Computed example of a mutant assay.
Amino acid sequence: MERFRDRAEAGKLLAERLKDAHDPVVLALPRGGVAVAEPIARRLDVPLEVLVTRKIGYPPTPELGVGAIAEGGEPVFDHTMLRRLGMTPESVADVVERERHELARRVHAYRGDRPLPPLEGREVIVVDDGLATGGTARAALRAVRAAEPAKVTLAVPVGARETVGSLRQEADEVVVLRTPVDFRAVGQWYEHFDQLSDADVLGLLDKASR
């Protein structure tokens, strides 16, 4: 299956699938989702905003996610993973608190004192650069859903089939370009998959605002 050249190309391809959206709010999950969402917002001629999420990691191995949290929402745990590790949500309370602080820092870095746009009654498109376990996307969708939008769409270039299937229960629509059988990691489906910095995110948001 052909790879995307980069996140910008993937975003342009996704934008064609989303062009009939009616005056949506586009929310990107930083950092990588912002690079995908910028061409979408430009194509739809709507503002681009970020919805900050953080993974809740297993303390001995933080790369292993046991949940996630999104701004405006409560922690969403992978209870199957917690049971497998012999843990409970209370076991990672300290991790959750640290991630809340980092989430708040990033919200301030990306938006300052500017709040999220009103979502109630609006069509909302949540964008990320790919879905592996889907933990942060799930937390984001639940936080958005709590704001009572008219419709919630999750848009991603690529994702693991099982994850995409499970997230169809969280969103009204999931728009995904590729669900490869041999999915192992999001980055393998991009020729260029550079890690983005906060400065990169701010640059993309500034570009979108112009």
Score class of each variant (00 low, 15 high):
R7E: 00
Q195F: 02
I40G: 00
A93D: 07
D6T: 07
D6H: 10
T88W: 01
V107Y: 10
G33C: 14
Q169P: 01
P157T: 04
A15G: 03
A139H: 04
P117W: 10
G130S: 06
P39Q: 06
I40W: 02
H101G: 07
R98T: 12
T80K: 15
P47H: 12
V144K: 08
V34Y: 09
V201T: 09
A140K: 04
P89I: 04
R122D: 12
M87I: 07
V95R: 00
D78T: 03
V25G: 06
W189C: 05
R3A: 14
P39L: 06
P60A: 05
T88F: 01
V181I: 12
V26R: 04
V34N: 10
V152G: 02
R84F: 05
E16G: 14
G165A: 11
V36W: 10
G73A: 13
V107D: 11
M87H: 07
A8K: 03
W189E: 13
G159L: 00
R145Q: 09
V181P: 03
H192S: 15
V46N: 11
D182F: 12
R138P: 05
R105P: 02
R106F: 04
G112V: 04
A160W: 06
A28W: 00
A171M: 05
D198T: 15
R5T: 14
P157F: 07
K55H: 02
L64E: 11
V164P: 03
A10I: 05
V50P: 01
A21W: 07
V36F: 10
D45K: 15
A10H: 06
A185S: 15
V52C: 11
G159P: 00
P89D: 07
P180M: 08
G32P: 07
Y190G: 02
V76M: 12
V174W: 09
D206I: 01
R17G: 04
R210C: 07
R84A: 15
A199N: 07
R31T: 02
A109G: 01
F77N: 14
G67M: 00
V144Q: 09
L44S: 14
V25E: 11
G86L: 12
L85F: 00
G121T: 10
D113L: 03
P24N: 14
D113R: 05
G165H: 04
R43Q: 13
A171S: 09
A155I: 01
T61I: 14
M87C: 08
R138T: 15
V66L: 02
E120M: 09
D78L: 02
A137Q: 14
R43C: 08
E162H: 11
E162Y: 05
Q195E: 15
R184M: 10
P60G: 06
Q188Y: 10
G187H: 05
L196T: 10
M1P: 14
M87D: 06
T80I: 10
V52D: 08
G33K: 14
E148S: 15
V174Q: 07
